[in-house]
Each structure stands twice: as structure tokens, then as C-alpha cells.
Design a protein around this nucleic acid. Sequence first.
DNA 1: CTGAAAGCGCTAACAA
DNA 2: TTGTTAGCGCTTTCAG
Lengths: 342, 342
Amino acid sequence: MMLLASDDTRPLTLRDVSEASGVSEMTVSRVLRNRGDVSAATRERVLSAAKSLGYVPNKIAGALASQRVNLVAVIIPSLRNMVFPEVMSGISAVLEETELQPVVGVTDYLPEKEERVLYEMLSWRPSGVIIAGLEHTDASRAMLSASGIPVVEIMDVDGTPIDSMVGISHRRAGRKMAQAILKAGYQRIGFLGTKMPLDHRARKRFEGFTGALAKSGVEVADQEFYSGGSALAKGREMTETLLNRDPELDFLYYSNDMIAAGGLLTLLDKGIDIPDQIGLAGFNGVELLDGLPRKLATMDACRTEIGRKAAEIISERVNTPDGAPSVIELTPKISYGDTLRR
Amino acid sequence: MMLLASDDTRPLTLRDVSEASGVSEMTVSRVLRNRGDVSAATRERVLSAAKSLGYVPNKIAGALASQRVNLVAVIIPSLRNMVFPEVMSGISAVLEETELQPVVGVTDYLPEKEERVLYEMLSWRPSGVIIAGLEHTDASRAMLSASGIPVVEIMDVDGTPIDSMVGISHRRAGRKMAQAILKAGYQRIGFLGTKMPLDHRARKRFEGFTGALAKSGVEVADQEFYSGGSALAKGREMTETLLNRDPELDFLYYSNDMIAAGGLLTLLDKGIDIPDQIGLAGFNGVELLDGLPRKLATMDACRTEIGRKAAEIISERVNTPDGAPSVIELTPKISYGDTLRR
DNA sequence: CTGAAAGCGCTAACAA
DNA sequence: TTGTTAGCGCTTTCAG
């Protein structure tokens, strides 16, 4: 019995469409990319042939031939922290208007993993890179510089960018919050946050915060750090711990809104008068949390805006290969909510 | 004045490494991929040359030549719903042990966008596709079937898969919760959820839920739907609305834990006795919410496990191109928490 | 408006 | 163990 090996599931190529439509590969390629002038008639024939075959172009080959890849590498520490999906949506919103497409890589806050992910992504020759933070391994910095493509470091502006950067100053943010707290007359201030060795932005807020307090001769009365677990639950725990250790605290500054929400619920349970007996503030402006019994004092990290701006920078520089790097500092505002006296 | 055009930032190629090390391109390629036998000495020379030049391989060319792309397309509706990042982390955890890498595409729950994203991703010729849900446009189904690569549809098993599937039965989940509620003696039951035209899984839960109630002669007493906005706040609003309309309700079933949490906070504010005066249940088992004043009754959607299994299926089928499709139904369990009587 | 030829940077297959 | 040759499927470039 004889079998023809004709029905193997080899993916279709331009050539198949060319043969099916009786038009040269080159013209088929033109039609499929809307490039150059093609008569309406041939365009029709090509399109219907491609459709009926179910042809899907091979971008690998296209990219190799054209030396163009319409991908933008976006490298972030995590997807589980709502901050980053929000940045992503700013990026996507802008890139959707262009030919460019974001591709996400996640580093889990690990510098070596960042290095691996970056290497992996650069080997696809993307048109640009958007990467969270200003702290990278030497190798990562070297790769980014050598890549010759636009690089935007986002979220933070306290440092020197490789190329462009857009973000907020976390040091300034911490300082600002400290000033607002002091101005409102709070004196005995506790700090609650993540363990910070790898979260540079949280660290910088902490530094700005303690620095500004110090300037007024105030020291953080007590502090508590966590890692892992449900932030809401951790916020509760840490708040209990801190208040047990120092019942005289009159303000609690949390390094993010989730743990602040846990703290808020705990204080309400205890019947503590907020914001007069104890005030609270978090960081981020997480919309997710609207609907809590009190509106938390917080500071908007401008996440979506950072994403938008970063994407715009990439998009511009892709079209203007010899443009200059941009540095954009956004200014977060304090939202006092119901938990910080004015 | 004469300038040599030598210093243009053309990306490095294998050839550059070959010349720098005095070893043939082929051998350089072997070293860089750890393929075939190469003497320790030449390996050394190649590696140091590559490193000192800062060479990053071009995967585009590699993929074209080898007809292999170690990417797995993961297509999900959204990143802002914590469900999907959790699925992603299951996928990543498994793929990190392999050569494969996930690449995410987001559809915003729009079938046409799903189709576009799918087309886009398939044109990169990934090794496999993991895609949320069983409902796709005809064109999407056709592309997936024609692609000739393993496809795993995830999250839902109420339907017919294109290839493999792994998930839970949302109909059964809704039914189970209805039975538990009835068994606990609740009679006048309200439903609160998302507007569901495009969220098929929420719709199926609703169908299973009402179906099981109907079997016991019970109808949903009232219902309320939302879209957009902060889920916590929406949960509050809808709960108020429903209780105003029908103060006799003794159970509220929410289509997700976030809005259930909003409902919980509202009921506690009102001093309502939970779970005796009114019971509540959500869906998902969001760890994020541990730390609420009461533990919500909910049902685990097995998100991470679904991700793991899906990745395992892809990984196996990549190595066994003629393997058979798998169908895996996971079984979510009710967690009664403090808001549903046993 | 359409087509032919060359080659993108790498790897499979074979030869030495 | 190493090198040579011939493409991968597309787009660029140039010629009709």
C-alpha cells in the first residue's frame, strides 16, 4: 500500500499562497503587509487565497529579513503586585496605537534573574526596552547600553539612567509624607514595610521619610518589616505587634496600601479613633481598596501615567533613531483621605 | 577630514565572535548552545571572546534556521484580575524547569481582540498555546487547529476542547455552592455579580447555581450586576441596593471574592449577624483577602494548579509530538469560613 | 504595478 | 573534534 506524504502538517508559507493565487511571492508579501502599490484585482485574489488556506505569516522570517521586530520588552519585578499590571496597562494603551507590541518579562525582584530575562529578551532583538528601576547588575547595564535600542527605566528617578527614565522620586515622596505627618502634629511615628534589601523604591521612600523626620529632630519610634504572605493579614499582625510594643504611637506609616488597609481594619476593631488618636498612611493609591470603611491617606505613584510616558518615549525614539534621551519626573500628590489630619 | 564608518552600532554576529576567537562560526554556535563535543580549550576561547565582545545571540535567526521556538503563548483576558497572574505563576514555575518560556497576550475579554492577539502570537510560531476559556471565534478555533502545535484551554471544562483542557467545571461549582447554601437552611437568596455577556465562566457558575436552586424549588430572590470600578466599592453598593430592595434576604452569593468582601464590610457596618441573619459566599479563594474581619466562604478555583498542569501538558507534548490530548478536571472545594453555616 | 535575485544570522547535515 | 555547505521564509533592492 502506498501513502503519499503530502498531508503532513507543515506550516503554510508565502509560496503556498503564491501558488494558490497565481501571484508572485513578492506581490503576495506586498499585499499582506499593505506595502507598495498593488492592483485591487490581485490584492483580492491574494487575500482570498491566504484566507481560504488559513495562512499565518512567519514573523521570524520576516523579522530576520527586514531587521525589524515590533516588540518592546517590558521587564518588571512581579505581576502579583497590582502596581505592575497598572503600569502595563498604560504601556499597552499607548502601544496599541502603534505597530509596537509589549512583551513582559518578570524578574521576581532578583537581579540575576533580571539579567537572565534581559539576555533572553534582547536576543529577540526588540525595538526597545522598558525596565523597572535604576538598579541593575553591571552585566545588565552593559547589555542595555550595548543593545543600541531605546531603553526607558521606569518608576524611579533617584539615580542615573542608562538612557531615558520616567518615574517619581521615592525619596521625595517619603520626605513629603513625613512633612505632612509632622505638620499635622503627630509625634510618635511607627514605620511598617517590606523587608527592603531588594525593593529599592521602598528603601528610598524609607530613607526620605526618616531623613525628613530627622531634620525636625524626630526619630522613627519603632518599625516592623515583613516578607511574603497576604499583605492584608501581615498589616494586621505588624500593627498589633507594634502597638503592643509601643502603645503610645500616634502615627503609622506603611510602605504600601495593602498592609495599611490591614492596619486600618485592626485599629477600627480596637475602636481606636482615627485619625486623632492614631493616624495612618500608605503608599500607592490602589483603587482596589476604595470601599474600605475609611479612605486611607496615601500617595499616588502615577503608575498608569508612567507606563504611558515610557511607551511614548519608546515609540518616538523608534521613529527618530537619533533622538535624545528623556528624563521625566512625575510628582505624586498626597491624598489625605480620612486617616491623616490636615 | 575622514571618518571611518567602522564604529556604527551594528549588532554583533556569530561571525564577529568567530573572528575574534579564530574558531569557525559553527563551532562558536556549538559552544554557545552547549551542543556537540567541543574541546575545553576552544570552548574557553569562544566563551571569553563572546563575553568580552558582549555578544548576544540572535534568536530570530536561530529560530528560523532550526525551526524551533521555545516560546509558549499564554492568552488571558486580563492581568488586573489576580486570578490570571496566579495562573501565570503556576505556568512559570513549571516552564522554568524546561527550555520553554511563557509569553503573555491579553484580550480584555474581547473575542475579536483574542483573535488578533492569537494571530499575532501564532505568527511567531510558538511551541504551544495556553488559552483561557473554551469560547473562541470560529477564526480563532480554526487558527488553533491549523497551527499543528499543542493547545491547552484552561480554567473551564464545561465544553469541548480544541485539543487539551484543564480547569474546573464552573457549572458544577455553582451547583455545589447552591446545595451547601440550601443545606444550611438559607431560603431567600440574592445573587451579585459581574455583567456576564463575555465572562463565560461567571455565567456558567450562575447557571449552575440557579439550576440547583430550581431543583429544590427555590428561585433567586433578587440579583444585581456591575461592571468596572473598584470591586470592593461595587460590592458595598450592590449589597446596599439589594438589601434596600429586599430586606428579607438571608443569603448573598457573589461572583467573586472582592465584591463579597465589600458586602461583608457593609453587613458588618450595619451590625448584621453573620452568618445567622445573613450568610455570604464568594468565589475564588483570594489569598489577598486573608485578614478581613471574617473569613469569607468561598470556593478555590485551583488557579495555580491549573497553570502548572497546563504547562506540564505543553511541555510533555513538545517532547512527544504524537501524544494524545489530555482533559483534566480539577475539583474545587468549598471553604465555609465564618460566613456560611455548615 | 509586478517579478527575480540576493541575503538577513543562524543551524542541520554532512564531510573531513 | 572541527569545518563546509546549503538553506530556514521572508523582505530588500533593483529591474522590468
